[in-house]
Every structure is written in C-alpha cells, then in structure tokens.
Amino acid sequence: MTTTATKLTPEVKAVIGATSEFTEAGWGVVNKESLRRFTQAIMDPDPRYWDADFAKTTRYGEVIAPHLAGSGGGRAAWQDVDPVSLTFRENPVADGLREAPGRRRGGLPSIPTDLVRVLNAGNEIEMYKHPVIGDRLYSQSKYASIIERVGRDGAHMLIITTETYHWNQRGELCYINRGSSFQR
C-alpha cells in the first residue's frame, strides 16, 4: 500500500540527535568461543584470530578479534522469559528482528513510525584498534540523521543513520560505525 503522507513527521524529527547511554556492547567480554564462531562465519582463517604463538610474533603481540566482532550483533540479555518464545507468542508473524524483547539495540529510542520493514542500507566504518580476548566493549549511539525518500512506487521510506562509537574497557577507541537502514 502506498501513501502520499510524509513519514518524516515532527515526532520522527524529534528523535534526530537522540543519544544513548554509554552501554556495554554486543558480547560483553570478548571470548575465544564467540571469536571462533564469528571468524568462521566470515570465512576468515587469519591465524591472528586464533593462533596465540603466531600472534605473539605479529605487531599485535596477542590474538586479536575483527573490529566488529564482539560489539556487533543482537545478543539478548539474561531475562526471566525466553525472548524468542515471547516474541512469537505476542505476534505469530513477527519478523524476528524489531520485536524481540530484551534485544540490545544500543539503547536508542524507537522510531515513532508505522513503517515496519527494515533493510540494511550501508555503512561507513573507521578502524583504530582491534578488540582482544578478555576485552569488555562499550558503545554509545546517536541518531545522526533521518531523511525521507519516495520510491518508484510512490511509497515513502525513511533512511535512518546511526553513529556508534565503540571503546574497550580502557577507553581506547576501537572503531566508529555509521550505519544506515531503510525503514519502509
């Protein structure tokens, strides 16, 4: 269904610039097992990620993790009720993404819109330091911009850009990710 009404309402504009709390990110503590699963899933056999003896000979001096490992993803927090069961009990046709209770989303407020479908639009990433095993990662996010576009079919959509800084427990900046998504 298409509509000519703008989706960039005053309520949506009001969340531009909203900033989250400084929060623990993704996995919390970077650990060997999660690192194994992550690097296998990106098909990267780099021994810097798993061979401690070799890693000692590199410029890093220890096993490192890809920048986005550890702080990416949607790890659910511990909670009383299984979040997946709860999601589908409340909405049998849930998309599994937005409605999952307890899912970490960087602590930003929801976008007040009736647009329900979300697709990843792109990223700008700056890298500074690799996380390492045992690091505890933190992030802070901001709605950097929200703009409106009208598709060929006349449907309005929002393009939401979130800027997130990621640090380790020593306050060292690991990376900055500016991620954009379509909400349509």
Binding site: I42, D46, P66, A121, E124, M127
Partner: peptide, 25 residues
Amino acid sequence: QSIMPGYLKDLCLPDGWMWKVSFQH
C-alpha cells in the same frame, strides 16, 4: 559489513592498516 573490512585488512597485512571503509547495500 565484516567481509569488506576483512578483504581490505588482508591487502594490508602484515603491517599496514585498514583505516576506512564505506559501502552501500
């Protein structure tokens, strides 16, 4: 989002640095 940085990382090994990457899906 993790594949493109990994590709550029490999080009820089062992002692270069993959600083920035930007892309659209």
